[in-house]
Amino acid sequence: MNKFSFFEATSVEEALEQVNSTVSATIQPNASPGASVLKAGGIDLLDLMKEGLSKPEKLVSINNIPQLKEITFDEKKGLSLGAGITLAEISANARIKADYFALHQAASKAATPQIRNMATLGGNLAQRTRCWYFRSKYHECYRKGSSTCFAQIGENEYHAILVNADCASVHASSLATAIMAFDAAIEITGKEGKVKIVSMNEFFVSPDVDRKRETILEAGEIITAVILPKVKENMKSHYIKMGERESNDWPLAEVAVVVELNGEKCKKANIVLGAVAPVPLVSESAIEAIKGQTINEQTARAASIAAMTNATPLSQNAYKVPIFETIIKRALLALL
């Protein structure tokens, strides 16, 4: 890692006074020197720095800001999770397990026990893709501003099978898959305490919109909370991750489903796929197929096949299609 100075912030305001860059801006080949960036758990940031991709001159730690550790419940707004709570804390939270089961599952299955003790909710959502071309300092890939996505003709075993024409990376956050399925919102605080609330769809940026970033976060902004809407009666959720190894691994495919049931009939559904595209993807086709239907083997299968109709696998990742078809079906049937 390059040399850097270190500042520990005790409040959001203090942290934002210190930063002048996003981590993403430091990864660009023409990154300007003197960058000062936020550091939470550091799992993603230190990795980028150790690989020589990011060379900030100052790290501003946000690990000891009480506001970011708060979990609050409001009858109207729902459950607000401070961005600084760890994956282990999400996994151990009884209310999350009872009301937002898919999120509990996603947090419990992500990474390793050690990483879950360190990694934060906000950092998990803001982390960069694990595409090996993006993570290699020798490859000036599409996501670093060039016009070449090396995965298109290179090694693309773990890459995207949907919306993969420009950049075939997959989004790295498993939590995002589950959080998006609950229609959650993200609270972002800017300088002078300006707060904005955005939907998960607005938060993630597709490479065709802006290739150099994965979220809308600007320098001087920080995720302060994730707000999960209050659960409705008859709402159920489930999350499935399939990896190469059972012990711990990045997902090859993952799905989160949240439905409102009327008996076994699906009144309303949200189906979100992860490890499938450069951003977590709401599968409109699968939702359309299952909405208003009684959930059973046949309808669940139809929805899962609908989700993959537009798949455009690359040379090495067509195997992902049947995996998605299987886990979408299984997740829907698990709700019964």
Partner: peptide, 15 residues
């Protein structure tokens, strides 16, 4: 008392 990765922790942050 929490298992943590020492390679991904900055010594300065242990406090």
């Amino acid at each position: 008392d929490l298992p943590t990765l020492s390679c991904m922790t900055l010594a300065v942050e242990v406090g």
